[in-house]
Design a protein around this nucleic acid. Structure first.
Lengths: 358, 358
DNA sequence: GTGAAAGCGCTAACAC
DNA sequence: GTGTTAGCGCTTTCAC
């Protein structure tokens, strides 16, 4: 083992053997440090035999380039920041979880790691504080922005500072946005769900959606609308707009059942769909057999609840792949911004979407 | 604006104005670079007026220390690695999600960021590959290890390499383990659930748990056992051990209902509890009114399913706080390893745990 | 194709 | 208290 007097005591205490450096490899392979660097980063530049010798030294020592040094030199961290928002208790949502996982997996393959942070909006009062800190301290190379339906705050702030970022979610407010984004066509999802019910013979299909100020909710609602109109079916009195909560879905369904006699419900979320199922249970009705229900997001609730909630599933794995692809373009030199990507959801058909038996 | 000819073109292209450095602040404040460094890291060393002058220069320039440079110098990244495992589709589990969020929040307050990575076990065949890479490239200061019930592989591997880590989960296999850990007393959770049912008048309370090779499952089962024994109630024929899947819980409940006539079920997970509820629904029985059911983990499913699944809730927020506390000790100089922490879960009482009406 | 020199931005050690 | 010096480990010119 090489003597490493250059190492300070605290490091020795923490790690038994200090990590080998470029210099160690160079010495062992009998080449200069640059040659080792080239072997790692530009192997094509080396002669085959030199490369082999260096490679062997690298393997023998278990050399890995030191991140901090590389980051300092290249001015990049190969880290991407992702802000996560608080878990919504009492709802069925599960989108972020799956997306984060896919993102970590995909970005890992591209050589990036995902750095999580929270907005601390409740602490500092500024939801952008987390971004600012990471950006100014050059901790991350880029950001992934989600929740774009909440407004263009994040996006415009980042754009102003010329911080590279990719949005998962279209720029709802800003038609002139130039940043790369990936989104899922949730109107198509709602349309898919509605058509499925129409195929099952339903003609009075209700929409339980979110309040009008939710752009996402209006978008999903438009899918229901166009499917209904496309089939020449009535929609009057069949739409309801409420908070995204189980109780809200329940009450909305109760009112709807009394006033509009639908045979099926399409909902903007699994949370609302579960609420509808509660309303049915209260009336002794069985979702699927008596009244059809379709949710949105294919949450764990949809997957496990009796008798299985038919639900629109977002292709989050694919979304993550596209996001990372956009990211790689953005971080290459010169930066390349490809076309934005819109993905189409699928429908997971389960027990709650039975045929019309009225 | 200062002229910054030292900056390379690619950086200028990406960020409009380069980040100010220590030298910029020093120049503006009319002090040396070291003094600025002290102002940031050891403000006590400066005279009040110097500190104020430097601070003003910092604010004026919007200076933030460059992470990479600081990391290189201090040999620490203030990053902690957390391996996430694939999302389990079709189950009700939600533990990791909540834990990750709490961890990000808590560690952020302590000056650490959470770096996510996956094992890529399916790709490389080595579940420890992710750890190895991050460790050898000195990308993280420490790890948070979860899933310790799967064996001591991660822990012993990290210990061998003297990598600092805190485990969320006790060292099941290794009584001699010296690393800090935080865990939740799930036996106490199961006991809590069982006692609650006993208080409700139930005497024939069945256990639907995991297979015998699951240490976690056996631990939870022991809580049910001790509550039953403590109340002098019979347990013979009332325990079942199955896979953690809705279908398994359903079949187990069917068999149990036929053979042992329980009036209540305690389950090792919400997933199994949902399975039990399916079995009840198939027999026209109402969970809560006819037969009581209690789950484990307080998942979104428990929170939203009709009529509300009573479930054991793990104090994950508190666990994250304790983990970060242990981490701070571990990363201080000299490293301090405090006592391990065992937290007690609570019971979220909902509709499925009604009184015995038999 | 390989080596020598320089320096990224910061902080530890020491001089004053 | 403050300034000077040195160097963390790497990559980027630029000679040869």
């Amino acid at each position: 083992m090489l003597e490493r007097s250059r190492l300070d005591a605290s490091r020795r205490a923490r790690f038994a053997v200090s990590a080998p450096t470029l210099a160690d490899v160079a010495e062992l392979a009998g080449v200069s440090r640059q040659t080792v660097s080239n072997a790692v980063n530009n192997p094509d530049l080396l002669r085959a035999d030199t490369l082999a010798r260096v490679q062997q030294a690298i393997d023998q020592l278990g050399y890995k380039p030191n991140r901090a040094a590389r980051n300092l030199r290249t001015r990049s961290s190969h880290l991407i920041g992702l802000r996560i928002s608080p878990v919504q208790e009492g709802t069925a949502s599960a989108v972020m979880d799956r997306f984060v996982h896919s993102l970590v997996e995909t970005s890992g393959e591209a050589g990036y790691h995902v750095l999580l942070f929270t907005s601390d909006a409740q602490v500092t009062g500024d939801p952008l504080a987390g971004y600012d800190e990471l950006l100014r301290s050059t901790a991350v190379d880029a950001f992934i922005v989600t929740d774009t339906y909440l407004g263009e705050g994040q996006a415009s702030w980042l754009r102003e500072r010329r911080a590279p970022f990719v949005a998962f979610g279209r720029p709802w407010d800003d038609a002139n946005a130039r940043h790369p984004w990936v989104d899922i066509d949730c109107a198509a999802g709602a349309e898919l769900a509605t058509r499925h019910l129409i195929d099952k013979g339903h003609t009075r299909i209700a929409w339980i959606g979110w309040k009008k100020d939710s752009v996402l909710g209006e978008e999903r609602r438009s899918g229901w609308l166009s499917a209904m109109h496309g089939a020449g079916l009535p929609t009057t009195g069949l739409a309801s707009r409420v908070e995204d909560a189980v109780g809200s879905g329940r009450s909305a369904a109760q009112v709807m059942l009394d006033e509009a006699t639908p045979t099926a419900f399409v909902c903007a979320s699994d949370t609302l769909a579960i609420g509808v199922m509660h309303a049915l249970a209260e009336r002794g009705l069985q979702a699927g057999d008596d009244i059809a229900v379709v949710g949105f997001d294919d949450s764990q609730v949809a997957q496990t609840v009796w008798p299985g909630l038919t639900s629109v599933r977002q292709p989050l794995e694919q979304a993550a792949i596209e996001v990372v692809k956009a990211l790689e373009g953005l971080l290459s030199t010169p930066p390349q911004v490809g076309p934005s990507v819109m993905l189409t959801p699928t429908l997971e058909i389960r027990g709650t979407s039975g045929p019309d038996r009225s």
